[in-house]
């Protein structure tokens, strides 16, 4: 204690800063500022390029009813496809993560983990081809059955698509695409559940499922939500797979998942329309991109907020 008194006196002076420290501080600060600048640059570009679409006469905008009427169905389609994907992927991903962390023998668990991660490495266009060439034709009898037997539910009102290029197929393809993201993050969180929690639950006489329900899931909830939100972000922005699979003619809002008439998604619509567009058409597409940018940003901010709030009182503390 006595020896520390003079040393605190010395550290109250400016700390020693070597060249490396200054370089490191400078570059990391620069990188941080650069990120903000890039984001601001993209936002600025979108706003400037989109502006003419908002000021142009409504009849000049593609579709002929103004930019809001053009973007609204696209926004709806984007959200519908992404939510559908999330509904399909999240339970599956949590199941996969639970199996890998709680049930599987260690050796199998590792291999399975790699396999699921591998799904994330497949390019989206490959998923698109898989969806259109393999999945969609096999689903058409199923859609016909749904339309015949469950047609009273608006989701399956039909008429069923004969090619299988439906919103439901898109949801399945997107679900498979975001599965590895959600499951990887859930897995990491489940692995961090303190052994004491699990052992305590088991010691109190809980079965394995009860242990998972009482110890693992509450601890991992923030991780599951965070992973799901990241997956949602990917599903919202997915372009090529949707462009290849979805039969979309734009301009409609419908919850009918199995008919050939679907709203398009923003990203795929841009990919499909941009090459042959000129003038106001391009501005309108950029405006739809701006809408997607805002939506994605909102989803990510929300995800952050949820994860941060939950982490305060979750688990071991």
């Amino acid at each position: 204690m006595t020896s520390t008194t003079p040393s605190t006196g010395s550290t109250s002076r400016a700390p020693v800063r070597r060249l490396g420290d200054r370089l490191f501080a400078g570059t990391s600060r620069g990188a941080g500022i650069l990120i903000v600048l890039i984001l601001a640059g993209v936002a600025g570009f979108l706003i400037v390029q989109a502006a003419p679409a908002f000021t142009a006469p409504r009849a000049d905008v593609p579709g002929g009813h103004g930019v809001v009427a053009y973007i609204a169905p696209l926004l709806f389609g984007t959200a519908l496809a992404a939510v559908l994907a999330l509904l399909i992927a999240t339970p599956l991903a949590v199941g996969v993560a639970l199996f890998i962390t709680q049930f599987a023998p260690r050796r199998l668990a590792q291999g399975l983990g790699y396999l699921v991660d591998l799904l994330a490495a497949i390019p989206s266009i490959v998923y698109g081809f898989w969806g259109i060439a393999w999945l969609a034709p096999r689903l058409t009898p199923f859609y016909a059955w749904l339309a015949d037997h469950l047609g009273f539910i608006p989701l399956f009102a039909g008429p069923a698509s004969v090619t299988g290029k439906t919103m439901f197929t898109v949801g399945l393809v997107l679900g498979v695409m975001i599965l590895p993201i959600v499951s990887a993050i859930s897995r990491e969180v489940f692995l961090q559940v303190p052994s004491l929690h699990r052992e305590a639950a088991l010691a109190l006489g809980a079965t394995r499922w009860e242990m998972i329900r009482m110890a693992v899931l509450p601890y991992g909830r923030s991780g599951i939500i965070g992973g799901a939100m990241l997956g949602l972000g990917r599903a919202l922005g997915e372009t090529l797979a949707v462009a290849i699979v979805l039969s979309a003619s734009g301009g409609i809002v419908t919850f009918n998942l199995i008919s050939p008439d679907n709203p398009s998604t923003i990203a795929s619509n841009i990919a499909l329309q941009f090459p042959e567009s000129t003038g106001i058409g391009v501005n309108t597409l950029v405006a739809s991109g701006l809408a997607l940018f805002v939506l994605t940003l909102a989803v990510n901010v929300l995800a952050r907020a949820i994860v941060n709030r939950r982490s305060q009182f979750s688990g071991a503390n």
Binding site: A136, V162, A248
Partner: peptide, 28 residues
Amino acid sequence: ADTWPFTSGEAANGTSGVVNAVKNGTGT
């Protein structure tokens, strides 16, 4: 018009997409 004027019907991306959709469906 270079964009299909109706919002109904099957839609497919590119010539290859249309050929594929016609091939995979029945009555297309």
